[in-house]
Design a protein around this nucleic acid. Structure first.
Lengths: 149, 149
DNA sequence: CCGAAACTGTACTAAGTTAGTCCCAATTGA
DNA sequence: TCAATTGGGACTAACTTAGTACAGTTTCGG
């Protein structure tokens, strides 16, 4: 399945919704707009706030706002915030990883595949998600550039 | 993490190893070559056989061989065989999926992101993995072409 | 013809992860 | 002061994954 967590999916929906609103919105409000359960929305917004993708305003008329412009927040940012560093395999990530590292010839290839996937994720911004139409033309070029590592 | 299963990772290692051998190799043999546990290797080969990525030869001198040329088997094929259809989200996949399909504006975007990721995965073949050096130059161009859907 | 080597299929268990929920403390505006 | 709202945990139930085991079938070699 190569799946991302359901939470990450929800998060993109939330953020895309927020991209279309200028004022601060409360968790309850966002829940109503997106039809996602309130506790889940609240939990997600906390995480996004900690990752500094949204800024929070406490108090009676509080709520959340995008921390940056929708154009500058990418899907890669969102996934990174919720799932940690993006890495298809243990070894492509920095960490200790598997015990075959030293003789595993496949490792370095995973690294490149990883880069390409991340590039694809970086190519889509919240502004794109908020837009009703499909991926803009810039998509292609960005993928090319990033894949050239 | 955007993770793929450990099994998928192992599978690429196994297949890359097989790409370098012409004769049929037994599960035990492959286990020795890759240092992966025997039962796991056996299980994986069964799945790969069912997915028709490898062909099996039963009997005393039996074993497994790649069903196609290493150049024609991609990482996307391997992942597809072990994890089912490649799809980051439920909704990007065909299935019933989430209950917000009808009004979720994010869905169609996921579809495109998905395509780009799959393109990256299709761009790398077993022949590439078996090769000790990094991704060949064709990589870039393939990504471009596929992303243009 | 027999036995060893190898694949086939299925079932099972233990561990880890994820999704979802709840509660209480801290903050702010009216 | 009160009500609305975020902040930060903790917790549970369900699901998925990894890994193992075992009984059956096929084929080769002697």
């Amino acid at each position: 399945m190569l799946k991302i967590g359901k939470m990450s999916d929800y998060a993109t929906v939330l953020l895309a919704e927020m991209a279309g609103v200028s004022q601060a919105v409360s968790a309850a409000n966002l829940s109503a707009r997106t039809q996602l359960p309130v506790p889940t929305v609240a939990k997600l917004l906390k995480q996004l706030s900690k990752a500094q993708l949204v800024t929070s305003l406490r108090g009676a008329a509080g709520g959340y706002t995008l921390a940056r412009s929708p154009e500058s927040i990418t899907v890669a940012d969102v996934l990174g915030a919720l799932e940690g560093p993006l890495s298809l395999t243990e070894c492509a990530q920095g960490g200790s990883g598997c015990n075959r590292q030293h003789f595993c010839g496949t490792k370095r290839h995973w690294h490149h595949i990883n880069q390409a996937v991340i590039a694809a994720l970086k190519a889509v911004t919240l502004a794109d998600l908020a837009r009703p139409v499909a991926i803009p033309s810039k998509f292609k070029s960005v993928v090319v550039i990033e894949a050239r590592t």
